[in-house]
Amino acid sequence: MAIIINLDIVMAKRKMSLNELALRVGITNVNLSILKTGKAKGVRFDTLEAICNALDCQPGDILEYIPEVPKNIP
């Protein structure tokens, strides 16, 4: 996938645990973990806003776009 989730990096910089962030954001640890590991298919803007508020960061600190290289190029 071309979208990379850097939530674990931002959390580490802020020294915030998954449990603490989940409590501040108001979502379950499981759902936050799915997002953190990059397994989520999407994220609601209100959730992203709450995460950015809790971590004092911008959405671009959490989400990164890295284009995939096509596999059929010799």
Rank of each mutant, 00 (worst) to 15 (best):
M16C: 04
A22D: 05
A40M: 00
D56H: 08
T28A: 11
I34W: 11
A54Q: 06
T28E: 08
R14P: 07
K13L: 07
R44L: 11
N29Y: 13
A40N: 09
Y65L: 10
L23Y: 11
C57A: 08
I66A: 09
R24E: 13
A50M: 06
K13A: 10
L63C: 07
S17D: 00
T37A: 09
S33T: 11
D46G: 00
F45S: 14
N19A: 15
R44H: 13
V25H: 06
I66Y: 02
A40D: 04
L55R: 08
D56P: 00
R24P: 02
A50R: 12
R14A: 10
M16K: 14
D56S: 12
P59Y: 05
I34G: 04
Y65E: 07
K36C: 10
L48I: 07
Y65S: 04
V25G: 05
K13I: 00
T47E: 08
I66T: 12
G60T: 07
A54L: 03
G42Q: 12
K41I: 06
N31W: 09
L32C: 07
V43H: 01
K39H: 13
E49Q: 13
E49W: 01
L35A: 09
I66G: 00
I34H: 14
L32W: 09
P59V: 02
I27P: 01
T37I: 09
N53R: 14
I66R: 15
D61P: 07
Y65A: 04
C52N: 08
I27F: 05
S17C: 01
L32S: 07
